[in-house]
């Protein structure tokens, strides 16, 4: 039994989601192979080879994989799969969610999405109804295609020394090409994997006021998130969104500022270890799940908090 993990990487290095996917793949019991599809991606392949629990790294290197599209990465994976693998594992991030369904559809199997626990090689736990219930499902397909929730599995540590094997990259499908990327550069930690997350909501009233959170985030070395209300109001870009339709986070400390706590937002952060809520409405639902609630005007309390931590 072998498991193919689709690595998320930028060529030089692995994205933080990949080691989580390797851990999940390890739980299935079997040889874990990691597919690195890219161009000049030796760095990422070596990083994958160094992860504990990896048996082999498959490196598909071709110019058309430099900015990998779902079409081309799926084609590479599909060329490797027949007869060789029982499982395909991808992280449930924007990258993995773009590719895995394409592979599942081609194999004519039912994908199991956002897996939070693995009970047996064919039995998985996944959230349904926005995380208000967890369903244990058994897959009867010959190949299981899974996307895994990265916050539910630990990151695989170092200590592996797997061989890197070059594999033929499937030819360019020519269906689509990436012509540009606008990735926001930030010195802050990645939202999905940060140890501390500070999120702002509609209570902040404007995009400028998010600067106030930045000062606090700098002190705590935290990532900044937002509720859907703040994103919809245009205060911050879309990828800040924490919640059912945004990012799922589970940091050690989550500070919700000016967020009332709609169920869709809670779905994205209620697995955080410690939750702090600052809101002027004492009846806000966020206080029901917060470990430490602070009722008051955030425009006074946040600067106080920043000063207190200084």
């Amino acid at each position: 039994m072998s498991i193919l993990v689709i690595a998320e990487h930028d060529g030089a290095a692995l994205k933080s989601s990949t080691p989580h996917a390797v851990t999940a793949a390890g739980r299935l019991g079997g040889d874990v192979h990691v597919l690195v599809a890219g161009h000049d991606a030796q760095g990422a392949a070596q990083a994958a080879a160094g992860l504990a629990g990896v048996a082999k790294v498959l490196l598909a290197d071709a110019p058309h994989l430099a900015a990998p599209t779902a079409e081309n990465v799926a084609a590479v994976a599909l060329a490797l799969l027949p007869g060789a693998y029982t499982h395909v594992v991808a992280p449930a991030t924007g990258y993995g969610k773009n590719i895995a369904p394409r592979i599942a559809a081609k194999l004519d199997v039912a994908q199991v999405s956002d897996v939070t626990a693995i009970e047996a090689p064919d039995t998985f736990v996944r959230p349904i109804y926005a995380g208000n219930a967890f369903a244990t499902v058994q897959s009867k397909d010959p190949v299981k295609v899974l996307t895994i929730r990265t916050t539910a599995f630990d990151s695989a540590g170092a200590g592996g020394s797997a061989p890197v094997e070059a594999v033929t990259a499937a030819p360019d499908t020519g269906l689509s090409t990436v012509t540009g990327q606008e990735i926001v550069k930030s010195d802050r930690p990645e939202l999905a994997s940060a140890r501390i997350v500070i999120s702002g909501g509609r209570g902040l009233a404007s995009g400028e006021n998010f600067r106030m959170l930045e000062a606090l985030a700098d002190k705590l070395k935290a990532a900044i998130g937002a509720s859907r209300a703040a994103v919809d109001a245009g205060y911050v870009p879309n990828d800040y969104q924490v919640g059912q339709t945004g990012k799922i986070v589970a940091p050690d400390l989550y500070i919700a500022i000016g967020i009332s706590g709609a169920i869709q937002h809670l779905a994205g952060m209620k697995d955080s270890k410690v939750i702090v809520a600052i809101n002027k409405d004492p009846e806000a639902p966020i206080f029901q799940i917060a470990d430490y609630g602070l009722v008051g005007d955030l425009f006074e309390l946040v600067p106080q908090l920043t000063a207190e931590l200084g």
Binding site: A110, F134, A135, A290, L294
Partner: peptide, 22 residues
């Protein structure tokens, strides 16, 4: 192709703690 074996409720958080000031 998927059989749902069981559905359980997630563990409840027991929040509600309040603090007086910063």
């Amino acid at each position: 192709r998927l059989v749902t074996l069981r559905v359980v409720e997630p563990p409840k958080r027991k929040g509600g703690g309040k603090v007086a000031d910063v």
